[in-house]
Design a protein around this nucleic acid. Sequence first.
DNA 1: ATGTATCAG
DNA 2: GATTCTGATACAT
Length: 626
Amino acid sequence: METTRRSRGLRGKHESIIIHFDYDCFYASVFEAARPELKFQSLGVAQKQILVTVNYEARRRGLHKLQLISEAKKICPDVVIISGEDLTEFRNASKELYTFLRSFSWNDKVERLGFDELFLDVSDLIEHNFSLLNRNDLRNSFFCLSRTDPTTGFDFDASYVAGNTWPACSTDALLLNTSQLDALRLKLHLGSHLAQFLRKELEERKGFTSSVGIAPSKLLSKLVGNLNKPKGQTTLMPPYDLDGVAPSNITSFIDEHPIGKIPGIGCKLARKIREFILQEPIGIDDELSYGAPKKEVLVKDVRLHPNMNVETLEMLLGGPGVPRGIGEKIWGLMHGVDDTNVSKARDLPKQISIEDSYTRLDNFREALAELHMLARSLINRMHIDLLEDELEHLSPDDADVNVIQPISDSILRKKKRWLAHPKTLRLSTRPRPPLNSDGARSRTFNRISRSAPTPNFLFSLTEKTDVLVERLVTEALVPLFRKLHPEKSRWNLSLVNIAVTNMVDSASDTRNSMGRDISKMFKGQDEFFRQRRVQDRSAPPGTYTEEEVGREPTPVSDIDRAVPVAHRGSEDILPLSQDSTVSRDDDEWLFDGNTVYKNLTFVCDTCGATMPTFAMLAHCRWHLEE
DNA sequence: ATGTATCAG
DNA sequence: GATTCTGATACAT
């Protein structure tokens, strides 16, 4: 890989068209959408003592992000300040915009970055429309948005770039000559018009303006999108060649950025690089402090430094907490090379966390109260993000006349089900910096944490929330808190966070995802297979050998009758969890809405059949093809 | 699996 | 760096 890249002189592949969206002052926009009169006033969104976002009216008056409220009020006494500590509305708006933009994607390569940014890999849409272009009549082009319906789309003029370009004056006048429009250039034209269309849709249908970058990679689309904010878009124009004598717009674009502005080079890495280049330590008070004006270190200063190469970077930056191969990665970034893909859209978060910060939290009584508040929020979040309504099919015998509704021959009932089960519960705190004048230096850590398996009762759909909160605090969080802070009261916390992580998703739709999840499950269970293999040799008639699993799509039922199967469906773990005398967890796998008893019996959620676990893959395939 | 670090907005 | 309230990923153990 390394040699290939080197021999080609670090040339990136420029086959993709990536669009990066950044919603303009997102938090402020969420409030403005709800109360349009706020648009004409200076608006700041506050979390504790700082403004995390201000709208553009406020920026005109000299306010900025991450400004102290006290400072902002001095500069602009009439600033309207709204608390943004509860992120619910932001999360909702973010998800709505994400879902909306995702609906235009063909390949589902849609990656969210925080609440207010996302990447779209539209290479396939662009490729399709590139092939549709009439080179002799670019001015009357049609952009097709649907794979199936050739009439869905919009008219546009493919002879020019929509919005801004970098460099600024490379387009309109120059490009009237069709022969100058190579394939890459035309694809970028297409990308820019698609981006403009999507921005307009976002504004008209959802009420959010955005700033957008169009380029061949995530790195470059994000950087180039910064050039025209707010409500602007910018396309990074070719030539892109990085190897030959030809000047590269990628190099000249990225070269002028301060090293720390490159995504992937955070404050820690930037500091190390800057210290190496400047050959002097950088004070802790580095930025914007009185006295020493900050010495800018630009990408080109680093890239062209005589001793700079991959190995130097690896030595300079490597260390504890730093991924290996960092040198190569950073070397690539400095040359505008970013091979990372836009990841596939996901419906479920990998982690849910909630936290609050405090000026003083130093006694157990208050800490307990905070744990209750956080626990309540976390449970609410779990219900919002991880629970979905399911329509359950009932046989007429089971039907409860009061809750069912017949819909064309089948009887359905609404039922909640977990889309995912987080396996781990974590409590983190940030102790206030231990006041040390000399000797013992304060550690580099900011947060400390303890975690434990998620208690099963948290998935109860029948218990009242109050009960769950109480149990979560007393049975899980307090023990974790005691582990973190064994001393009675020698601590003072500036932050408490609780999180559920290690998400194991159930299937969103049994028919579509069962096969996938089953293969995933089988992959990790070598031990299981080894044990089964032994038994399979003497398997009773009517069961399957391992080889037959997967190619014999016939259901097996009721093989292991000797094993009592107590539960079915996604709620099944609940009764177990609440009965402390039953041994659990070690004896079961929770899987795809079915309860699987390791080495014992699998109960199909779809038809209720019981079978040995090794037959389940074939059984589920049979359902899929039914 | 648990705990820390770094990145991002 | 840190300030806020998150979320993703990677390393060490």
